Amino acid sequence: MDAIEKAIRNALEKGNAEDRAFRERVYRSAFAALDRALQANPGVTVEVAIKRRKAIQEKITEIESEFLPAVPNVGLEVDAPAGEPAATAAPAIEIGDKTPSPAVTVDVAPPASDAPRSRVLPVVPDIMPDATLPGAPAIDMSVPASSGAATEVAPDRDEQRIRGRRLPLTAIFLTVTLLAAVGIGVFFAIQTGVFKTAAQLDTAPPEAPPTVEGDDFTPADGANAPAKPGAADQSRNWINVFSPTDPTHVAAPSDAKAEVMKDDSGPFLRIQSGASGSAVAFDVGQGVLEKLAGKHAVFDIIARAEDGKDTQISVDCNFGELGDCGRKRYAVGQQRNEYLFDVQFPDKHPGSAGTIAVNSDFDKQGKAVNIYEIRVSIEP
């Protein structure tokens, strides 16, 4: 017994199934339950909805046929069979003349061995559900998960043909989307110069390698951006912060080294951080900080790596009441170069001197760096 038939029969058992009016209310309740199920599932197609409605109508027709009276079998006999008991034959009926007519017999109670009683299947119309069904039990058209049954009707060939016609539309949509994506990619490639010819490429000598790699570094635009390393404006009014000729304002921790040296490039202070990553501190006098208070200043560290040992340095600042400069990182190569960073100082009294701490090897591999000068200028 499928789910539809079971639901209707369960509803009939809740009332007087012999009452035709009650049965009609049950049938209407079944159609109403189907409509609610279809409305709750907008993904069901029109074809599937029609097949479900026809399935209910067929089950109602089958169930209703059980409540119709049996139609007796009617047979025509010309001659009564030999040995037939007289009680089973009906008298001949004469119609107007004396001409013999074939005898008509009616089987009132056929034996059990005869053919089963014939039934007339009722014609059940497409009953529409009422807004309210007084006296009709509720019908649940859903199928329990444990039953294993399903009221889904597989799509017929018409629905399959409809789905088949949808495939070309999907293919067209995917093709248009792919072409649009390719077009956008080509547009951006042209804008970014990917397709430049060799004649259009920049053949100028390479610039000095970028060295700024600060943890809190944000590229600046406009006039306030500091100059690139190696491009400091010599016309600035520089204030000296450190010179190797006066190393007394340098402090090196116990596992770090600071030594004044000289070669063809001039005098410098070679610093080497310890295994703990300790930095060498350079004093920034209180008088210098007083000149920088409330100003936008650019600091310049002139340095290069030890021969054959490129390194990465990190720079931290402590300007007391005037704050700090954030952590900066620079890749230092074999060429003497300038490593710049700018600071916007608050307009307050510094109260004391400050420091600039330089770690000669951010990777803690014991590499050294030569410091030629540290200076600062005030931006106009």
Score class of each variant (00 low, 15 high):
residue 140 D to T: 03
residue 361 D to H: 08
residue 373 E to C: 02
residue 96 G to C: 04
residue 294 G to W: 05
residue 25 R to M: 14
residue 291 K to Q: 14
residue 202 D to G: 09
residue 259 E to P: 02
residue 313 I to N: 00
residue 127 I to Q: 09
residue 252 A to C: 11
residue 195 F to L: 15
residue 281 A to W: 00
residue 310 D to W: 10
residue 357 A to T: 11
residue 14 K to S: 12
residue 138 A to D: 11
residue 229 P to Q: 12
residue 111 P to F: 11
residue 267 P to L: 08
residue 77 E to T: 09
residue 16 N to Y: 02
residue 361 D to F: 03
residue 99 T to A: 14
residue 339 Y to S: 09
residue 225 A to F: 10
residue 11 A to W: 04
residue 231 A to T: 09
residue 53 R to E: 14
residue 45 T to Q: 05
residue 16 N to I: 03
residue 373 E to G: 03
residue 188 F to C: 02
residue 141 M to G: 02
residue 3 A to L: 11
residue 240 N to F: 00
residue 153 V to D: 01
residue 277 G to H: 03
residue 14 K to D: 04
residue 16 N to Q: 04
residue 186 V to S: 11
residue 287 G to P: 03
residue 331 A to G: 09
residue 368 A to H: 05
residue 248 T to Y: 03
residue 156 D to C: 02
residue 143 V to Q: 01
residue 14 K to C: 07
residue 134 P to G: 09
residue 242 F to K: 02
residue 23 R to M: 07
residue 28 R to K: 15
residue 316 D to L: 12
residue 117 R to K: 05
residue 373 E to P: 00
residue 319 F to L: 09
residue 101 S to T: 14
residue 300 D to T: 08
residue 292 L to H: 04
residue 121 L to S: 11
residue 250 V to W: 04
residue 193 G to Q: 10
residue 281 A to M: 05
residue 328 K to I: 02
residue 223 A to P: 07
residue 200 Q to G: 05
residue 226 P to W: 09
residue 182 V to D: 12
residue 231 A to W: 03
residue 24 E to A: 04
residue 47 E to M: 05
residue 130 D to T: 04
residue 134 P to D: 13
residue 82 A to R: 13
residue 107 D to S: 13
residue 144 P to M: 11
residue 49 A to L: 10
residue 48 V to Q: 07
residue 92 A to N: 13
residue 124 V to N: 08
residue 23 R to A: 06
residue 161 R to I: 10
residue 159 E to N: 05
residue 45 T to D: 13
residue 203 T to K: 07
residue 220 A to H: 02
residue 147 S to R: 05
residue 157 R to F: 13
residue 312 Q to P: 00
residue 285 G to S: 14
residue 297 A to F: 02
residue 132 T to G: 05
residue 177 T to Q: 03
residue 137 P to M: 04
residue 183 G to Q: 10
residue 115 A to H: 09
residue 232 A to N: 12
